[in-house]
């Protein structure tokens, strides 16, 4: 009830120190300890299946179990760990990681921007839909990996080809989810904006895009997963650097521990980018009622 609340603070005022963990909701004293213990619980719960997997892996390889599945030549966790530590102290490995990350972020960002733009056009304009929809439907079923030969011919060097393939893979989930999100918007938001005098552009920018963000972000999550699959595959086929290339090269050198190191790295990188997208999505869509739970 005071005029001090007039500050330009965005949407929901949160204690900044807790903003990371606590969705909007009641601000009580002692919330912090609840949050940290809940965070601890989450870590413990996440560790249980991962730990069990590690243990099973260790036992299966240690005792070289051969029971239809053959674990006798699979490297064990200890071996993989030692390979990992040697790799972590070497420059080329980091280079591979960074190259893959750069490719994925580049391809994914272009796909995100382009997919939302094209999706919004198709979702909002009947003409754009008539023009572009068939084009998209023709290209959509083509696996991005099938583009490798063409990408090699098209682009001056392999780097751009791989980024293009990543972009191609990520583009369609974003576009399609954007189109669906546009169509799922309650018409009353747009009606209200129009009676207040909003034009097409204003409605697009202030009503349609923010309202479609939940749907767009579910597309972005899917796109990030697909992008990883394709960047790794493309690196395996045509790359010169990158974690996919590293993995494939280790296989060529019969360095199976190296293959597993590559797989684990891909898993961790993929997880962190997915987390980033999720995190950003929650921030953008924190007005959603379910965001509070």
């Amino acid at each position: 009830m005071t005029s001090t609340s007039v500050s330009s603070a965005p949407v929901v005022t949160e204690d900044p120190s807790e903003a990371g963990h606590l969705p909007r909701g009641p601000r009580r004293r002692g919330v912090r300890s609840v949050v940290t213990s809940r965070g601890l619980l989450a870590v413990v719960l996440a560790a249980i299946p991962l730990g069990a997997l590690l243990l099973a892996w260790h036992l299966l390889t240690e005792y070289q179990v051969v029971w239809w599945l053959r674990f006798d030549k699979i490297p064990g966790p200890a071996e993989v760990y030692s390979t990992l530590t040697t790799q972590l102290s070497s420059g080329p490995f980091y280079n591979d990681l960074l190259v893959s990350l750069r490719r994925i972020l580049l391809g994914f960002s272009i796909a995100a921007v382009g997919g939302v733009a094209i999706g919004a056009m198709i979702g909002r304009s009947r003409l754009a839909s008539a023009l572009l929809r068939p084009l998209i439907e023709v290209f959509r079923p083509i696996p991005a990996i099938a583009l490798v030969p063409l990408a090699i011919l098209l682009f001056p060097d392999g780097e751009q080809g791989i980024v293009f393939i990543t972009f191609f893979a990520a583009f369609f989930p974003v576009t399609v989810s954007t189109i669906h999100a546009m169509h799922a918007l309650p018409p009353v938001w747009e009606d209200a904006a129009r009676t207040l005098g909003a034009g097409r552009m204003s409605i697009l920018r202030y009503v349609v895009l923010p309202g479609a963000m939940p749907g767009i972000f579910s597309g972005l999550s899917v796109a990030m997963g697909v992008a990883w699959i394709c960047v790794i595959s493309a690196e395996m086929i045509s790359g010169q650097f990158g974690i996919g290339y590293y993995t494939w090269q280790s296989y060529g050198l019969l360095d199976y521990a190296g293959v597993v190191v590559g797989m684990v790295s891909i898993g961790l990188l993929g997880w962190s980018t997915a987390w980033l997208v999720e995190r950003l999505g929650r921030r953008v869509n924190r007005w959603l009622p379910r965001a509070a739970s």
Binding site: V11, V12, P186, V188, W189, D191, A192, A193, T195, L196, G197, A198, S202, Y206, V207, P210, G211, M213, N285, W287
Partner: peptide
Amino acid sequence: AMVFQDDALLPWRTARRNVEYALKL
């Protein structure tokens, strides 16, 4: 300008920012 039955506010904008949007327009 029209007042609708319900849920015509933009749910990602606070009450004040909903009003500000109309002022901006």
